[in-house]
């Protein structure tokens, strides 16, 4: 009896793993994450799991969020930097909990319900073109920026860029978070409006503009991209704000209806694992969350460099407020009002 049952379970496992092995050739990852940036990590995964073929789709955050709900079959793993949307999906029960050793050991502030994990640690930075310091003292804090924008309006008109809160989820999140920290944020928005700041959809576009000389100053760029960019473009200087610097995390979860949940678990485990994080810290600018890995890009090293003014956007229920339609509408209304306020 016992033996028969054991045998049945064994055969079941065998069949399951076999069928999965055949089908798991392709693990679908829908991600709002630049493939070029993350390539070393994906390569490392494919090397350590040769039986799994990754199909990594690099999309915008909006597309990713829509696919969570609409895709058929559902993607196995979802990665996005639009933290509130990821959070909302998890709260809606779209995620499958991961009960692994790595998941349990992951720091509490970087995960929620063991369902979604923040696996990168990307500072939000300012960037300016070398032209700027020739004319004025470059900003190192938000207050500096505000002063600069109000005092040197004429010179900076059209030369400032930042995220569009309407078209970019990341940008919206960052501004919401900024607004939570200080009401003077709206003065900054107004000041940016006064200099006709150009609103871009992503960091790459902002960096491109700075390199081309269209922009002198960029606000709220993803540090991960900017730092890599600056290495190859010496005219671009990256400044981590000295008063406070937001930190964004890419959030990953396994889809509830993932066709290959076990493989998906292995993938997420790899992202959280020491090995995955080491690749992250050494070969990508995404910064490792784990304190036990070393490399040029680790949270610890960042803290050592910029001090304690790093403010990670917390992965908790408060993020859900940002996706509330009314709150978003109210925020956008205020944004537009402030942006168009003329002095």
């Amino acid at each position: 009896m016992m033996r028969a049952r054991r045998l049945a379970v064994f055969i079941g496992l065998l069949v399951a793993s076999f069928s999965e092995a055949v089908a798991a050739e392709t693990l679908v990852v829908e991600a709002a994450l630049d493939r070029r940036v993350v390539a070393p990590l994906l390569d490392a995964f494919e090397r350590s799991h040769p039986d799994i073929e990754l199909r990594f789709h690099d999309r915008s955050t909006l597309e990713v969020d829509t696919l969570v709900e609409r895709a058929d079959p559902a993607p196995d793993v979802v990665i996005s930097s639009a933290m509130p949307w990821q959070m909302a999906r998890v709260n809606q029960d779209y995620a499958r909990p991961l009960r692994s050793r790595e998941a349990r050991a992951w720091p509490d502030w970087a995960k929620w319900r063991d369902e979604v994990f923040g696996f990168t640690f990307e500072p939000i930075v300012m960037a300016y073109r070398l032209d700027l310091p020739r004319h004025m003292m470059p900003p190192s804090t938000h207050a500096d920026l505000h002063t600069l924008l109000t005092t040197r309006q004429d010179m900076l008109r059209g030369k400032v860029t930042t995220y569009s809160p309407a078209r970019s989820g990341v940008g919206y999140t960052l501004f919401q978070q900024d607004a939570r920290y200080t009401p003077r944020f709206w003065d900054l928005v107004a000041a940016m409006g006064n200099v006709d700041a150009r609103l871009e959809e992503n960091t790459r576009a902002m960096l491109q503009g700075i390199t081309e000389g269209r922009y002198w100053l960029g606000y709220n760029l993803l540090g991960s991209y900017a730092m890599v960019w600056a290495q190859h473009h010496p005219e671009v200087i990256v400044q981590v704000p000295q008063d406070y610097s937001l930190v964004m995390m890419r959030m990953v979860f396994i889809h509830r209806d993932a066709p290959h949940p076990r493989r998906a678990g292995e993938f997420v485990d790899f992202l959280l694992s020491r090995e995955g994080q080491r690749v992250l810290a050494g070969q990508t600018p995404l910064f490792s969350v784990r304190p036990d890995v070393s490399g040029p890009y680790t949270a610890q090293r960042l803290r050592d460099q910029v001090g304690d003014q790093l403010y990670p956007i917390p992965i908790n229920a408060s993020l859900l407020a940002f996706v509330d339609p009314q709150r978003r509408a109210a925020f956008m209304a205020r944004w537009r009002r402030e942006f168009q306020r003329r002095r």
């Binding site: 229920a317 408060s318 859900l320 509330d324």
Partner: peptide, 21 residues
């Protein structure tokens, strides 16, 4: 009626046990 849902309220709802809210 207009509501700007306060983040703190959600945080309170979620509790330290990270409940769905």
């Amino acid at each position: 009626p207009v509501l700007e849902i306060p983040a703190a309220a959600l945080q309170i709802l979620s509790t330290r046990h990270e409940e769905r809210v």
